[in-house]
Design a protein around this nucleic acid. Structure first.
Lengths: 364, 364
DNA sequence: AGCGTCCGCGCAACCGATTGCACAAGTGAC
DNA sequence: GTCACTTGTGCAATCGGTTGCGCGGACGCT
């Protein structure tokens, strides 16, 4: 197999072979109606014969549009972010956009560098998924129309800074945790604890929603157990805290943490769901295959990725900022939150002691 | 917060503010030694004040280097590919490269389009991870120095086509499955089956390595069970086949399939590992948390991603093709392949009937 | 004073495609 | 034969940096 000639084929080469000018060749290749049929065909043939591939840099230099989108997320090797990335890539590709993907790894410095890369390459739009930088730091570089934030809420904002009121795409974490608490309560559990990392805006939003719901249902103040930033890798501290004074049910920050906890609880005397009900959040595939199957709340991650592209592309087209959106979530009942009366060994908790009103996104 | 002025800052603006020429400004910003200290400082200050961000398109148009790498894989929302992508992105970013990530989804058409995108943007290098296109189709467009293949082997090649002898990075699947078979044999299992999708070059390589090892150990011909292309989602067919005539142990194509099978076997009378030992391949996180913990072979996916960048960048720098490389894998013993004598209920198989020599990458 | 060097900087060409405008050829009307 | 128009093409400027080459001035030496 012969190697390609070192010199890349340029439009000028195509024009020469088709015996016409560069201008005409350029127009012919993009179906300009002013070009005659014969000329168009000749140019097409020449381009194909030479294996011509237009130079995007040159094109976008002139056009001031790059057909590039930037996606910044904090981790790629993660089921949730991976799905967002997959949806994003797919939607972008189908619209003819290439995607720069960069990871921030929770490091503001890396995020700034990634942002800078997007800017240098003049990305037509940028999506920031769970980034730690403040919006003001972002807008210093990127004009507001070109950004979509994908995150439940903002990290602590500096004085005077305000979260943007549009261009935000998030999952309905509040609704999700409301539904989650209502579910375990409906199943008959009363003493409910929330286990989360204890850091991050996302955790704050979720635990607040959970606590609020519990209180609304008249079941008192939520008990919080912090697993710490390393909780996903090693939740043994949280597991021991739970073992020493077990609640009826545990609602976790996310599925990964729930799975880790489920694993860590094996080395305690607590059985799930025999002694302790457990819930996650996100709907990752592993939750479906765990033993017992994890009850969780499904977040449409792929859809979120897709929708982010739509918001970005549509809005840059129309030039006006798009409103924020909230993606609905869905309860998935597994085996870790069975109705209390089926639990053997201990008396069922009195379900009627606290009449409970339940509402949720959807349920089946 | 004031919106950025519509007009992007150009080098000319910086030069004007610094009261010098564009040429000098350009050199000052890249620490050309010919520029005096005072001038350099003035340019720096001007650039910073104006928030100047160089235009990558213009730069690379002239320089003929884009500092862009392309990564084509067939799925992003997958633990293995996600790790490869993460390692790739990290290594690329630390070298100042931006990464176009595209998914092929096992579709040759999409792959071609992705390749075309990489070419239009003149990526400095491209990595093709488990793509279905033939190398000859790839090289028609991309010069050989700029490509690294990450895959165990090639799909069926057309007549006359040959796999490239360099620029290939793969995990040691052969060594891995050799080790896997040796491990289950060492644990005392004798009748061993391989469960794989039955399609794809990767599956062919793995099952061949497994079968060969079994035969070498004098344990006869490997039994193959095909789970089909949908086996990961629904391995019930394979599960039933196994249940109707259970072997001692099952070695799976990968962890995802093993996990799915583990789940599907719950609805049969077979207990893992009580009645059936099970092994996976890849070392995905979920395997570590499954119940029972899956014995598997760890593939250094993140490392593979990283190494791909190194091969690409180093080789385009030196201009000479880099040799192919094989990444070592490592056995991780879980709870699904206990020694046979510990299994209750049935007589232990005679371990001494077939004296077995075992060698493996490493083991602990 | 005359000459050779070195340093710091700017002119202008260039990368490859797009596009406003003008121009040439062809057609039909008068 | 001339004018008004349409249709198809080409010239040349432009996008925003990079870089080969050359020029002017300061400095040191004879």
């Amino acid at each position: 197999m012969r190697r390609q000639p070192e010199r890349r084929v340029r439009l000028a080469d195509v024009a020469r072979l088709a015996e016409t000018s560069e201008a005409t060749a350029s127009r012919a290749l993009k179906d300009d109606p002013r070009i005659g049929e014969a000329t168009r065909a000749a140019v097409r043939a020449a381009a194909h014969k030479l294996g011509y591939v237009p130079n995007a840099a040159a094109r976008s230099l002139r056009a001031k549009r790059t057909h590039i989108l930037g996606l910044l997320l904090d981790e790629l090797a993660d089921p949730v972010h991976g799905k967002v990335a997959a949806g994003f890539e797919e939607a972008a590709a189908s619209r003819g956009f290439a995607v720069f993907m960069m990871t921030g790894l929770h490091d503001a410095d890396r995020e700034q560098r990634a942002l800078r890369t997007f800017l240098e390459h003049r990305a037509d739009g940028v999506v920031l998924a769970s980034c730690v930088s403040e919006p003001s730091d972002v807008f210093r570089y990127v004009s507001q129309e070109r950004v979509v934030f994908v995150q439940p809420d903002y990290p602590s904002l500096a004085d005077g800074a305000e979260p943007p009121d549009h261009g935000v795409l998030r999952s309905d974490d509040v609704g999700g945790f409301t539904t989650a608490i209502e579910h375990v309560v409906e199943q008959g559990y009363r003493r409910i604890a929330y286990v989360g990392p204890g850091v991050g805006a996302s955790d704050a939003v979720r635990r607040a929603a959970a606590a609020e719901t519990l209180e609304r249902l008249g079941l008192g103040t939520m008990r919080f157990v912090d697993s710490g930033p390393n909780g996903w890798r090693d939740p043994s501290m949280a597991a021991e805290q739970l073992a020493s004074d077990p609640p009826d049910a545990v609602v976790c920050y996310d599925d990964k943490l729930a799975m880790a906890l489920l694993d860590a609880l094996r080395s305690t005397r607590l059985d799930v769901p025999g002694d302790l009900a457990l819930m996650g959040f996100d709907g990752i595939p592993a939750a479906r295959q765990s033993r017992p199957r994890l009850t969780t709340v499904d977040v449409p991650s792929v859809e979120i990725g897709r929708r982010a592209v739509e918001m970005l592309v549509d809005s840059t087209k129309e030039g006006k900022p798009r409103p924020s959106e909230v993606m609905p979530v869905r309860l998935i009942v597994g085996e870790t939150t069975p109705p209390v009366r089926t639990r053997g060994g201990r008396p069922s908790l009195a379900r009627d002691a606290h009449p409970v009103a339940v509402r949720g996104e959807s349920r089946r």
